[in-house]
Amino acid sequence: MRNKFMTFGLALIGAVVSFGSAFAGPAGEVRSAPWQMWLQEPASPTAERIVAFNAQLLVIETLIVIFVLGLMAYIAVRFNAKRNPVPSKTTHHTMLEVVWTVVPILILVGIAVPSLKHLYFADSIPEADMTLKVTGNQWYWTYNYPDNGDFTFDSLMIPEDELKAGQPRLLTVDNKVVLPVETNIRLLLTSNDVNHNWALPSLSVKLDTIPGRINETWTRIHEKYAGKTIYGMCSELCGVNHGFMPIAILAVSKEEFEAWTKQAQQTFASDAPPVPMTRDIAAIDNVETVRVADASAAR
């Protein structure tokens, strides 16, 4: 019985995942494809776990729905007034009631255990190799690389009429965030105005940027994504252009990253000085969420 369940489950996961990967985005890009029915391909260790976990959840939930649907179909056929003119009067069955309380509890424990494991995994920030600071603004992102020359730049969406051929609508930005693969990247997020949310589905990163707070998380991009662009979108309603502040990460090899930072220090040096908040962040070490010392700077 258990075996059958497992086999069926694994088969279903297999089907779904292979179905999903058939929808991978265009070459060189990590984003969703037309008619995609499954999660975006996982490009970080957290994402790999969460995609797999979702597949398990989906199997369990599908089975529950099918079970209920099956019972209902049987009831509709067997116990309609034509087939069964005389209703029974049963209103109690203690054993049955115990079963339908205990079995769901067991299923839920089965869900909770891996769920919490993944939760703690996603949260425990490993020794960071570098830090990226992200600041949300209405309606663009500001990025700062404190460990790689402390340069700062803004990333804005390119409007539709300025797109070049092949650039995706609503996702293309002027300055991509360049990040190295196979590197533990610490992410520090905050905002200069309202709440935003820096979300990358294929990295399983999704964290609010909130004025007055710095949220911390991490990611690590799998090396096979070197050279590819990973897309995301602001995921917290932040005003009129909420739909128009995409995130684009260009994953590169470590060497390319080194080279890029050198060049970026030149390119972005002339830029306006970094927002005051980002200076405050630099002083903070290994804390998950902290109060910004001088929150008025957030304005």
Partner: peptide, 12 residues
């Protein structure tokens, strides 16, 4: 309900 999974689902 799973905080871990909600990382991909929240606000979608």
């Amino acid at each position: 309900a799973n905080s871990s999974a909600d990382l991909v689902f929240h606000d979608t």
